[in-house]
Nucleic acid binder design. Structure first.
Length: 500
RNA sequence: CGGGAUGUAGUACAGUUGGUAGUAUACUUGGUUUGGGACCAAGUGGUCGCACGUUCGAGUCGUGUCAUCCCGACCA
C-alpha cells in the first residue's frame, strides 16, 4: 500500500498519512494480480471526471467512439515489423479456451484438448486489430476520414510495475484515425496533441511541454511521436500523453487501400493517440502536499464539503436548515456538494479526512456561526481559513473554485519552470541531472549519442520542444551549437530528463 | 530475468539463547464528548505464507516452495 509514498517520494511526512489516504480515501490498492491495480470508488470518480471531459473534447474535434476486441490473433501483431518488435516482449498470450476438473477431482487444470490453433494475445494496444477492421471499412476517398476513439483496458506484461504510472493492466483511450492525405494525418496528430495539452493544463492544472520524440523514443511503428511532458515534484519527468503520426505503415501492413478522386489507389494515412490512468499518477504527483491530495476543482468529484458542528439535535436541525439552502443553491450553479452531517465522526476527523481526499473547499457551520450569520471557508490549496457572512457565499465559493483552479496551475507552472535549466558541457550536464529537472542541451541527433547519455546518466531525451510563446525562453532557444558529448554540430537544444 | 529484503489479527509492526503469541490502530458494546484526526471501560479477532524436516517442544533452526516489496534491465 505504498503507492502514494512511492508516487510522492515524501517519505518522512507521507508515512504519517499515506496509509490513511489509501485505505480511507479509497484511492487504490495493489491487487493480488501481479502489477494490476484496484481503483476504488473515489479514485474511479476522478477517472470518470477525466474521461468525461476528454470525451467531450474528442467529440468537439469530430471524433466518435467505437469498441474493438480484447483478443488479437498473434499473427496480426507481426504484420508490422517495428510494432511487433516493440510489443512482443510484453504480451500476455491466450493459448487455451477451456479448463477441466483434475484427476483428483479437487481442482481444475487447463484442458490440453482445448489448445488454440492460433494463440491470441491480450491487446497491448489496438492498432493491429483496428487496422485489420478498417480494411473492410475503407474503399474510397468517400469513406475517409475515419475518426474513431475507443475507451478500453489494455495489458502490457511489464518487467516492473508502478502504481498508476505503469500497471500491467491499465485503462486508457486510444484514438485511431484514417486519412486520405499525409498532410491531413499529420495535422490530426498535432491537433490531438494540442487537445491533450489543453486538457492537462486547463483541467488537471498540470503544465506540460509539447514536443516531438527522438527516433529512439518513438512509438513502435510510427513515423513521428508527439508527446506532452510533465514535471513531477521530485524533479523527474513523466510522459503524460502521446499522439503518433503512423504514416502508411499500418495501411501497408494490413493492405488498406482506397481509390482517390482521380481513380488512383493509394494506402491510407494513419494516426493514433492515447492517454491512460497514468494521468491520475501525474495528478497526484504534481499537486499533493503533506496533508494529502490536492485536486483541481474541475476534476474534484466533491468540490465543496459542508461540515456542521453541533452539540445537540436542535442545533443540528437549525444548521441543516441553513446548509440545505446553501447546498441547493450551489448545486444549481453546477457545483458538486457533500453535506456531511454524519454523527459517527468528530468534526476534526472530517476536516483531516476531506483534506486527504483533496476536496477543494470546506464550509463549516456551528453554533457560533448560526448566531452571527456566518460560516467558515477553507481552501485546500493554501489551507487558508476565513469567516464570511452567509449572504452571498454561493457566488464567493464559485469564484473561489475558479481562483483555485488558476492558483494550482500557476503554482505548478512556477515550480515546473524552476526545474528547467540549460547546460553547455557534459560535465555540467552530469552534475545537473543528479539534481533532477528538465535540462536543455545540444545533441548531435544520433541514436548512438542518445544511448551513451542514457547509459552514463540514466537521462533520456524527453522531446524536441515545439514552439510555444508560453514556454520559458530557454526552451525556445533554437540557435545551433555543438553536441555536449561528441562536439558534432547540433541544430538546437533538446530536453533531457530522468523519467518515470 | 539478475541483486537485495520481507511474509505474524482488517491495517502497521514487535516477538531475546527454541518453551505454546503481543503492541498500536481498526472493529463491537456502554458512557462522556464534538470549532483540527476525542476519552474511559469492557469485548471480538491470528492453525505466525505454504510444505517437509530437526526437536520432548518450532513464529523462532534447516531445506524446498509460493507471494509481495525495493534496486536494475524493459516500458506509457
Amino acid at each position: 500500500m505504498a503507492e502514494l509514498k512511492q508516487l510522492t517520494k515524501r517519505s518522512e511526512n507521507y508515512s504519517q498519512w499515506y496509509n490513511d489516504l489509501v485505505v480511507k480515501a479509497d484511492l487504490a490498492e495493489q491487487s493480488a494480480v501481479r502489477g494490476c491495480m484496484v481503483i476504488k470508488p473515489y479514485g474511479y470518480a476522478i477517472w470518470e471526471k477525466i474521461q468525461r471531459q476528454l470525451d467531450d473534447m474528442f467529440k468537439a474535434t469530430g471524433h466518435v467512439n467505437a469498441y474493438f476486441p480484447l483478443l488479437i490473433p498473434k499473427s496480426f501483431l507481426s504484420r508490422e515489423a517495428e510494432h511487433v518488435e516493440g510489443f512482443a516482449k510484453e504480451c500476455a498470450v491466450v493459448t487455451h479456451y477451456r479448463l477441466k476438473t483434475n484427476d483428483a477431482g479437487d481442482g481444475v487444470v487447463v484442458d490440453p484438448a482445448a489448445k488454440l490453433e492460433e494463440e491470441l494475445i491480450i491487446r497491448p494496444t489496438s492498432e493491429t486489430i483496428i487496422w485489420s477492421t478498417y480494411k473492410n471499412w475503407i474503399h474510397s476517398y468517400r469513406d475517409l476520414p475515419i475518426l474513431c476513439n475507443q475507451w478500453a483496458n489494455v495489458m502490457r506484461w511489464e518487467m516492473r510495475t508502478r502504481p498508476f504510472l505503469r500497471t500491467s493492466e491499465f485503462l486508457w483511450q486510444e484514438g485511431h484515425t484514417a486519412h486520405a492525405t499525409r498532410e491531413e494525418a499529420e495535422k490530426e496528430a498535432q491537433t490531438m496533441l494540442k487537445v491533450y495539452a489543453d486538457f492537462a493544463e486547463q483541467f488537471m492544472a498540470v503544465p506540460v511541454i509539447k514536443g516531438v520524440k527522438s527516433e529512439t523514443e518513438r512509438f513502435a511503428g510510427a513515423l513521428d511521436t508527439y508527446t506532452i511532458e510533465a514535471m513531477m515534484q521530485d524533479g523527474k519527468a513523466l510522459q503524460s500523453g502521446t499522439s503518433h503520426f503512423l504514416g502508411q505503415n499500418f495501411a501497408k501492413a494490413f493492405d488498406v487501400q482506397f481509390t482517390d478522386k482521380e481513380g488512383k489507389t493509394d494506402y491510407v494515412w494513419a494516426t493514433s493517440w492515447g492517454v491512460s490512468t497514468r494521468l491520475m499518477g501525474a495528478l497526484i504527483m504534481v499537486h499533493s502536499d503533506d496533508n494529502g491530495l490536492v485536486l483541481p476543482p474541475k476534476l474534484a468529484p466533491i468540490q465543496v464539503v459542508i461540515v456542521p458542528i453541533y452539540k445537540n439535535e436542535e442545533q443540528l436541525a437549525a444548521i441543516s436548515e441553513k446548509v440545505n439552502g446553501i447546498a441547493a443553491r450551489l448545486r444549481s450553479m453546477g457545483i458538486s456538494v457533500k453535506y456531511d452531517d454524519s454523527d459517527n465522526k468528530r468534526p476534526g476527523f472530517k476536516f483531516a479526512d476531506y483534506e486527504l481526499r483533496g476536496v477543494p473547499v470546506r464550509l463549516v457551520m456551528g453554533a457560533r456561526d448560526l448566531e452571527n450569520g456566518t460560516l467558515e471557508v477553507m481552501r485546500r490549496d493554501t489551507l487558508e481559513k476565513e469567516t464570511l457572512p452567509i449572504e452571498g457565499i454561493e457566488e464567493y465559493v464559485q469564484k473561489l473554485l475558479d481562483d483555485m483552479q488558476q492558483n494550482i496551475f500557476q503554482k505548478a507552472l512556477a515550480y515546473r519552470n524552476s526545474w528547467i535549466k540549460s547546460v553547455d558541457t557534459y560535465d555540467e550536464f552530469k552534475e545537473e541531472i543528479e539534481k533532477g529537472g528538465f535540462i536543455l542541451a545540444h545533441w548531435d541527433g544520433t541514436a548512438e549519442t542518445e544511448a551513451r547519455i542514457k547509459e552514463e546518466t540514466k537521462a533520456t531525451i524527453r522531446c524536441v520542444p515545439f514552439d510555444d510563446p508560453n514556454y520559458p525562453a530557454i526552451c525556445m532557444d533554437t540557435t545551433p551549437g555543438v553536441d555536449m558529448v561528441t562536439g558534432k554540430p547540433s541544430a538546437r537544444r533538446v530536453i533531457f530528463a530522468r523519467a518515470y
